[in-house]
């Protein structure tokens, strides 16, 4: 006997994400899910972003997603902000953060004391794009050494994000990468995505990135 069913397989995951979102909205926190392949510079970006926001009077917290280790959390410790490590190893080593892990991490954060919450997702250009965590904005970091073809190979990621940060711009003179082609390929997958070249090392693009975050926060209320 065939029984027809129509059910979103990810409904439980999305339900928890909606619960997360309700908490964020209640506390007026802007939540940014930062995704990329491993080694694109997500943690370094946060190391520069969080002090810049602090200078402007905004406080931040971070949920650090990794399969294993606390290396990234330790890198952020000197910033003196709340950092919660979310490892997936005890849950089968998933290569993306799930909304249930974010929900568990939120128990360790005082949302009323922060303005921005950054979720540093697990380094991977495929799986994290699939799962909504309750965030307000999605950002993909694509570093120049990764090459111009990556948006075309991982279209869902670029399709799902509001902003692409082209990172490690300081390396441009040393690489044969065609930055304009990279931007064209990004826009082929998503006509609406904003693209911002940035270098956490030299500070290029940092003020524009901060301005984007502040605009997102204004747009939220």
């Amino acid at each position: 006997m065939e029984i027809p069913i129509i059910r979103d397989v990810l409904e439980e995951s999305n339900l928890r994400a909606q619960e997360n979102r309700a908490l964020f909205d209640e506390h007026g926190v802007l939540v940014v899910n930062i995704m990329s392949s491993p080694g694109s510079g997500k943690t370094m970006l946060l190391q520069k972003t969080i002090p810049a926001l602090k200078e402007r009077g905004f406080s931040s917290a971070v949920i650090e997603g990794d399969i294993t280790s606390t290396i990234d959390s330790e890198r952020l410790q000197p910033l003196g902000i709340p950092v919660v490590q979310a490892n997936t190893e005890p849950f089968g080593g998933d290569c993306h953060l799930g909304s249930h892990l974010v929900q568990a991490a939120l128990k360790h954060l005082d949302l009323s004391a922060i303005d921005f919450l950054f979720i540093e997702n697990i380094g991977n250009l495929v799986c994290p794009a699939e799962f909504y965590l309750g965030e307000n904005r999605r950002v993909v970091v694509l570093s120049l050494p990764e090459g111009e073809d990556k948006p075309l190979k991982y279209p869902l990621m670029f399709r799902e994000c509001d902003l692409c940060l082209l990172s490690k711009m300081d390396l441009a003179p040393h690489l044969e990468v065609d930055v304009e082609l990279m931007k064209t390929n990004i826009r082929k997958t998503n006509g609406h995505i904003a693209v911002l070249p940035i270098s956490a090392k030299t500070g290029e693009g940092l003020s524009e990135w901060i301005a984007w975050l502040l605009r997102a926060r204004v747009g939220q209320s």
Binding site: I6, V9, K188
Partner: peptide, 24 residues
């Protein structure tokens, strides 16, 4: 991976099908 309209070349396109996982 191209989300470009083949008729007008525009990039402002909405996905109607082909995204999501559904138990049927």
């Amino acid at each position: 991976p191209l989300f470009l309209c083949p008729r007008c070349g525009g990039g402002d396109v909405e996905i109607l099908r082909g995204r999501g996982i559904r138990l049927t």
